[in-house]
């Protein structure tokens, strides 16, 4: 298990202290931690559990239930490629194969240089402009293979 450095510990402690009064605070806490650190470190589990008066099993169970929460650092940017039906109707399977080949990674992996993580997503709500993908919080529609390459190049320097 990795350790949380002192900055991480400080961040987690601050977030838990700020949000612990909310009804059903665990998801807001996890979101806030992931927004700041990029992931929820396993070593954060006991800190969150103590702060919210939950068991470690409760906290771990929630983190592992939701696809969005990750327990390892992501690349500098996260590409979420939609795999749902509307995108499949517009050649998504070919785009997916191309994306994996272009990046040299599979889903849930990060490129060797740490620039991109690739995640599947099941609908981005852009079904009239399929296929769709998201880089960090920016949405793209009608993503052809060429357009995918252009987007990747544009984000490599960001």
């Amino acid at each position: 298990m990795d350790s949380v450095d002192s900055i991480g510990t400080e961040t987690i402690g601050r977030i838990v202290a700020r949000l612990r009064g909310l009804p059903g605070a665990l998801l807001p806490v996890l979101h806030a931690i992931q927004a700041e650190l990029g992931f929820v470190p396993p070593a954060a589990v006991p800190l969150i559990a103590e702060g919210l008066n939950l068991s470690r099993a409760d906290v771990h169970g929630v983190i592992s239930f939701y696809h969005y929460f990750r327990d390892a650092p992501p690349g500098r940017h996260t590409i979420r490629l939609c795999r749902a039906e509307a995108c499949q109707a517009m050649n998504q399977r070919a785009l997916e194969a191309h994306a994996k080949e272009r990046l040299g990674i599979d889903f849930h992996q990060t490129t060797a240089n740490g620039t991109f993580s690739l995640e599947p997503v099941y609908c981005l709500g852009n079904c009239a402009c399929s296929p769709a993908m998201m880089v960090d919080h920016e949405l793209y529609g009608r993503v052809t293979r060429d357009r995918f390459d252009e987007i990747v190049v544009a984000w490599e320097d960001r």
Binding site: G24, L27, V62, Y122
Partner: peptide, 19 residues
């Protein structure tokens, strides 16, 4: 947090409760 099932109403309530 990316769980399709949370569109089901009782599962959504569990999630709102932090579970």
């Amino acid at each position: 947090a990316g769980a399709y099932i949370c569109g089901e109403e009782t599962s959504m309530l569990e999630s709102l409760e932090g579970k």
